Computed example of a mutant assay.
Amino acid sequence: MNRLAAAIFLAVVCSGCPHRIEFGPEGPIDDPEKLFSLVSQAQANLITIQGDAKLHVSTPQGSGTLSMFLAISRPGLLHMETFDFFNRPVAALVSDGQRFGLYQTEGNTFYQGPASPENVSRFLPVVLPSEELVAVMLGQVPFIPAERKTLELDRGEGVYVLKLFRGSVTQTLQVHTKFYRVVRSEVRGVPGYDLAFGNFKQEGAALFPKEVKLIAQAAETELRLRYSDVALNAPPDLTLYELAPPEGARVVEVDAKGREVSPAPASPSPGPPGS
């Protein structure tokens, strides 16, 4: 067999080889409840993140990429700033989990109101509650409340396949065999979204995906968040979550659906006694 033929043969053979599997300190796991517990613990190791990122949005209406500065802290603290191509501020959204504020430089307008899913998701084409949005941006998967679980080892992909079941709803989790972090989540049987995580970075006890992808198939929408220079688990700077409007900005109150609330009419001043 000449060298070229040998190289082609080896490439074909190796392309079908299973991934080399590294297991964590627990060794191979065959109990779904035990793996689910380890996954939950691994996700809980990350509490805060602060730094720069790029958000790519693809929808049927079009696609584009934004530069962002993010400061996120569980359970529901959000600070997101977006910038244009020339790195000029475009908008800033802040939420303390109860109230939100959004400042838009164009129009010098500050919107404020309850931290409802519609309000905290204003930068996104999908609507998520603040705690769920924080979890996803931290690379964590919201789990369905499972009635039962199954577990398999996919040697071809080199991952655990943990399935959660609740009635006709299923959630399939591909889990890293060494670090117990979810690398992909797919929910079926109910409107929802899929998640994929990659380019993991380890800092102390925390393992963090620098790439987060959210796919909402029903809406034909995909979000890709790529972190660049970030700090993990630093004490949160609470001043970043203050809701005061910038001086001189026009302030607009909105309701939970994001609709502008008309100012209440001023109460008439009481007349003189006996009038």
Rank of each mutant, 00 (worst) to 15 (best):
N199G: 11
F200S: 01
F200H: 03
F200Q: 00
K201Q: 15
K201C: 15
Q202D: 11
E203D: 11
G204N: 02
A205N: 15
A205F: 15
A205S: 13
F208G: 00
P209I: 02
P209F: 04
E211L: 10
K213I: 04
L214D: 00
I215H: 10
A216L: 06
T221N: 05
E222H: 06
L223E: 00
L223H: 00
R224N: 02
L225Y: 03
R226A: 02
R226N: 04
Y227W: 09
Y227G: 00
Y227M: 01
A231H: 14
N233G: 05
N233R: 04
P235Y: 07
P235L: 05
L238F: 11
Y241T: 06
Y241Q: 03
E242W: 10
L243H: 03
P246R: 13
E247W: 09
G248R: 12
A249K: 01
R250E: 10
R250H: 13
V251K: 11
E253L: 15
V254Q: 06
V254E: 07
V254F: 07
D255Q: 11
R259Y: 08
S262E: 13
P263H: 09
A264I: 12
A264M: 14
P265T: 06
S267Q: 14
S267I: 07
S269L: 12
P270D: 03
P270M: 02
P272D: 11
P272Q: 10
